[in-house]
Design a protein around this nucleic acid. Structure first.
Lengths: 336, 336
DNA sequence: CTGTTAGCGCGTTCAT
DNA sequence: ATGAACGCGCTAACAG
């Protein structure tokens, strides 16, 4: 079923059919009628692959995320898709499982497949992957981090500042011994930034947290929160408040505290990060930082689209997405 | 950057370059060496769009889901992607927002874009959409439902049976007055199936639930669970156990019960469906039905792939995905 | 083994 | 306003 068959049926040339289909040039009412009828009768659909080849535009955005069963990334993808849809574009979604080699492969594949642009939300962009990104020949946007020495549009949350605000909140509540359950420092860039925000906020207040108050776990899962809190509770003089790198770990921390009979927030205040749905489902409800992965996805895609339209090269810009501390019952206590 | 330039640089014909790149025909070591060197030096990448056009195979699977910020669908997509990846294929992901018109548009677009196959996880497939699916010219797999009069491969959970098992569990616990908080009957197909499983299980046991024990809410969200439970509590003689169409609604039911000082499971037992992560995070932990959206995605894609390879037409088969009731503290009580 | 050529389906000149 | 012919980048069939 090609344009040629439509042309034959309508007894016109393929050029005329193309003109009617694309409204590219005026065509007499008579021929237009015959062509539209033929198209309708045959249920003809233009081959988008052939169109892409000529127009040198696929209307496809390549999206790489480490995982998707995680509200952060699914929200991100939903934001991306919504803007792509507005621009008549579609997304090719690939899940890297945090594997840098797979991420590099995907960059190659997306280039070969002539994506109009790429949105990369990799766990960490450095080493070989950083070089691969740098040598990309198509427009791209980075999510969640700003790799050094890479001119690019980056969309991220100001993790450092947001974490600092949580710590300030805890200090206002009177807490002086504040610990943190952190994920791996070198996995997600945001992990390290949240730790630095914690550290610097204390530092600015003239405090230095004891090493025993800081648990650096192997991943960001719930069980790591459990382990982290258990570790912290073993300190000679445990902290009165603990900041967790993400809500999921905070839930784990809750569980560890509960199984030891430590009450939140009366004995230990707990704060998280991300404001996932679970933050309002557990008791006490969790103080955390709200931000919008959906909005990040939107902004990233809008940025990409404007690059595509204006034919700009990489704008080397960082767009910070808004965040907002949300105070709930898990930190209403006043420390010592 | 085309194959022609590579050929020129290696001083061979484009056909020879193609042969080396695709290992399709033997080429002398000498030429092979020169070509591979040229490819490396130029960083040449074959244009996958041009390849698709010739091979009549894009290596692309179109995936339609109503939403993605929902563990069910993100798990599904992750399963699909994992198998697609094994088969060197990629996925084009589209989010329909449950809009049947958008779903129909997407079917057209996916056909125009020459997808190798389509996986459709629509909320409901009927009316115009059902006709659009039926007239699809490319292989497809349906997720979560079995529309009448449609020969197709369908992957689903046996919602009826699973819901029945939950009810049986409740009856074994001694419950005789069992209610249900259901979502809209005509939105998701699974919603109705779960209700029917509930109804039939009671019917088989010779019981007929009172209408006041059944709350049919407008959607499957948490707040609908709250409303549903409030409604049920207004009954003259409230049930001693309530089955909820999904875990999220069960959480809402928990909240409604808590705000009224009704204790779970001592005064009312509550069960859910889906075994989302939250089921183990709330207290008491939720009795529910575990099944694997990831596995559904895998099975769907494997089915699709075998259709593609064997050139079979629609196999008109229903594959039931395993499920397993998970009994936790929310139903440990013994009813009256 | 290697090179030349003919399309894949379509948009777009260029004549008419 | 319309049609014939070319080419997008590549693979495959055909010669040599």
């Amino acid at each position: 079923m090609t344009i040629r068959e439509v042309a034959r049926r309508a007894e016109v040339s393929i050029a005329t059919v193309s003109r009617v289909l694309n409204h590219s040039k005026p065509v007499s009412e008579e021929l237009k009628r015959r062509i539209e009828q033929a198209v309708r009768e045959m249920g003809y659909l233009p081959n988008a692959v052939a169109q892409s080849m000529i127009q040198k535009r696929t209307g496809l955005i390549g999206v790489i995320v480490p995982e998707i069963s995680n509200p952060y990334f699914s929200g991100l993808v939903e934001g991306i898709e919504s803007v792509a849809h507005q621009h008549q574009s579609h997304i090719m979604l690939a899940i890297s499982q945090k594997d840098p080699r797979r991420e590099m492969d995907l960059l190659r594949i997306f280039q070969a497949r002539q994506m109009d642009g790429i949105i990369l939300a990799a766990a960490r962009i450095d080493g070989e992957l950083r070089r691969a990104v740098a040598s990309l020949t198509i427009p791209y946007v980075l999510i969640g981090q700003r790799p050094t020495g890479l001119r690019a549009l980056c969309i991220q949350v100001d993790n450092r500042r947001a974490a600092g605000e949580v710590i300030e909140h805890l200090m206002e509540k009177g807490h002086r011994r504040i610990g943190m359950i952190s994920g791996p420092m070198w996995d997600l860039a945001s992990g390290r930034e949240r730790y630095e925000g914690y550290r610097d906020a204390l530092w600015k207040a003239g405090k230095t947290p004891r090493p025993e108050w800081i648990a650096e776990e192997a991943s960001f899962r719930l069980k790591d929160g459990v382990k982290g809190m258990e570790k912290i509770l073993r300190a000679d003089e445990p902290p009165t408040a603990v900041f967790c790198a993400c809500d999921r770990m905070a839930v784990g921390a809750f569980q560890a505290l509960e199984s030891r009979g430590v009450r939140v927030p009366e004995q230990i205040a707990v704060a998280g990060f991300d404001d996932e749905e679970v933050a309002t489902l557990i008791k006490p409800r969790l103080t955390t930082v709200r931000h919008s992965p959906f909005e990040m996805g939107r902004k990233a895609t809008e940025g990409l689209m404007s690059i595509l339209q204006e034919e700009e090269s990489s704008p080397d810009e960082v767009i910070q997405i808004g965040h907002e501390p949300v105070v709930r019952e898990s930190t209403t206590s006043v420390g010592e």
